[in-house]
Design a protein around this nucleic acid. Structure first.
Lengths: 251, 251
DNA sequence: GAGTGGTCTAGACCACCTC
DNA sequence: AGGTGGTCTAGACCACTCG
């Protein structure tokens, strides 16, 4: 019939838009630069704002953009490499530890954590909250679960960060004979989101680490890293930037 | 004035909806069960379909749901643990390798890969495509870049998978003295998406691995794992399921 | 062809930031 | 107060799967 080839691919608009924007970001924008607002951009490309937003969301997910309510959309710097594990194993709180203790409580852990610790579900454990800052930005929030058995006698008078540090000190004295690690995608709970300066539900990389002593788990860490700004590195060797773009500073 | 406490939190509807659905999934549904369709669900909760979809998207991102166009939305099984690195280091294509070679070409690599390989940007390299299947599902697609220098003389007559295997055999004979790994969030390119049985743009965990011989990179692997179904494990010790829910089989 | 999820529209209002 | 991104609506049509 009259249907000459009608263009093979009904590629979704938002997908095509994302590609176009991505190329524009490479060639016409510099890191930190602020984009036109969503209503203008949508008008410029002749699409509804929702469609434009779908493209922007993808680019934000890929770490190309940063959007802040009330402010605007800016071009994000390349993701920073964040060392999660090196060949030199050490307890959390060890000498060259990038984390900052925030506070500590004693609670019964969620059931998944109890299972990982191989303890009864109602056993109380120390729960330490820590945060990690890199390049002046918060990049991760952690909950570290330590069975009371591993850190028994503590001055219960201490509270907050001081108490957390006391628990960490106790850990150092134990033998560490292994680590176990898993990484998966998650979305930030409200408390983590606040810590990470993101909205609840923001994509995060959840790193679950188990620390073993005498063959049994002595601590479990659940760390949530901002997925938009972080590239987790697991290095044998000194980390070399694979995305070796220059890092001009934002204004 | 008369403003008694007006409820502190104008929590977004989709967020609240996600919580409600999440709890319903835990208590009232079994793995593989099919949910009511989106229009019905939206009506039942008294929200627009777009809002309902925002909640479903989050749950899918967290691996709780699986949605397939033309079919429906089903309750997903817990994520499977996929071993990415063990203590026993080995070249790709080694004895207990979970990957399946698909084909091989010779091209100039993308600039980011050339940088990781520490070669000139226009040096041609072998590009192997491999896929990984676990529990009967495709879980990852990989591009493996090997400079011709590391695998020089190959029967150029071979094509496809046979050629890929030939390159891998060449690698085995080299000394492996280190690995370097990074994990970050990405979205599936069209070709990877097809391999992974997902739509383009689906969230993936991108694992970039560099293999070193004589202190220089001899191969770079860029593997994209389905973020919805996979939990990447980096084990010292035998992996124990942390999400220890039973795995009833889907119908 | 009927039913599903995926895309898209054109609006509205809200929460937040900055001036 | 004005501008930004975030949420939400009520529709429409499309692409896909399956009986």
């Amino acid at each position: 019939m009259g249907t000459t080839q009608l263009e093979a691919a009904p590629e979704p608009k938002y997908w095509h838009l994302k590609t176009v924007l991505s190329e524009a970001l490479d060639s016409e924008f510099t890191v930190g630069e602020i984009l036109p607002n969503e209503r203008d951009l949508a008008a410029r490309f002749g699409v509804a704002r929702a469609t434009l937003r779908q493209a922007l969301e993808q680019l934000e997910l890929e770490g190309r953009l940063q959007r802040r309510r009330g402010v605007g959309t800016t071009v994000a710097p390349p993701r920073m490499g964040v060392a999660v594990a090196s060949n030199a194993r050490d307890w959390p709180g060890g000498s060259d530890d990038a984390w900052q203790a925030v506070d500590a409580t004693v609670e019964s852990p969620p059931s998944a954590v109890a299972a990982a610790l191989e303890t009864a579900p109602d056993t109380e454990v120390h729960v330490l909250r820590r945060t990690r800052v890199s390049n002046g930005q918060p990049v991760a929030a952690e909950l570290l679960y330590v069975p009371s058995a591993a850190a028994p006698d503590l001055p219960t008078t201490d509270t907050g960060a001081a108490r957390a540090r006391a628990v960490l000190r106790e850990l150092q004295s134990l033998g560490l004979d292994g680590e176990d690690r898993a990484v998966e995608l998650g979305s930030a709970r409200a408390d983590d989101a606040k810590e990470l300066d993101r909205l609840p539900g923001a994509p995060v990389l959840v790193v679950t680490t188990r620390y073993f002593t005498h063959g049994t788990p002595a601590a479990v860490s659940v760390a949530t890293y901002r997925a938009d700004t972080c590239r987790l590195t697991f290095g044998d060797t000194a980390s070399v930037e694979i995305h070796d773009a220059p890092h001009p500073k934002a204004s």
